[in-house]
Design a protein around this nucleic acid. Structure first.
Length: 191
DNA sequence: ATCTCGATTGGCT
DNA sequence: GCCAATCGAGATG
């Protein structure tokens, strides 16, 4: 399993968000392995982006957004863990929120962690997928470009799909630009 | 120490 | 469609 290299992430968050679609998120833990195809993402910038955690000053929570690309940036909102991957060049804040994946491996473990049987409810939302994958603050700062990391992103099989975009979900104030990207017609895209 | 808020979710009408 | 529970971080005292 070869992770996608760091240079992939050190570009505009919007480009990274779009191109992450179709690739595979892999988490390895003592409980087992879970794998899913990324089907929905959102891009966040720094200064000038009212919805971003990095729109204001640096804090212990958001400082990772200024670091190099390809690091897991994790925080809690409404009692749920959100998984982001840092993007853009070191010193330039940016991140991509992983909003949904399609389960590929470890569905039994996902069902156990989520406490639901319906596969469609396993990973079809940012809080759902972190619960299904067992992702929490412990993985904050994990390097998803390292093959030794418990959390990584690897190249998906080449597949044809249509990418659509929309405004970002749930944000109080959004930018004019469409910054949510998803695979058209995929049933794991959140509502 | 206490209060407020949110890049959400699930249950109920 | 509406609504309340969720809980850690940041702000405030």
């Amino acid at each position: 399993m070869k992770p996608i290299p760091r240079r992939f992430y050190e570009r505009s968050p919007a480009t990274v968000a779009r191109e992450l679609l179709g690739n595979l998120l892999v988490h390895r833990s003592s409980e087992g392995v879970t794998k899913g195809m990324i089907v929905e993402t959102e891009a966040y910038f720094g200064r000038g982006d009212p919805a971003s955690r990095a729109s204001k000053k640096k804090t212990p929570l958001n400082e990772l957004m200024w670091e190099r690309g390809g690091l897991a940036f994790i925080y809690m909102i409404h009692g749920k863990w959100m998984l982001n991957i840092t993007a853009d060049k070191p010193g330039v804040p940016g991140a991509v929120l992983i909003r949904a994946v399609e389960p590929v491996c470890g569905m039994d473990l996902m069902k156990k962690r989520r406490g639901v049987k319906d596969e469609l409810l396993l990973t079809s939302g940012p809080g759902r997928l972190t619960e299904a994958f067992g992702i929490a603050k412990l993985l904050h700062g994990a390097d998803v470009t390292s093959s030794r990391s418990p959390l990584m992103v690897i190249l998906g099989h080449p597949r044809k799909f249509l990418v659509k975009s929309s405004h970002r979900i749930g944000v109080k104030e959004d930018l004019r630009e469409d910054l949510r990207f998803f695979i058209a017609g995929n049933s794991y895209v959140s509502k």
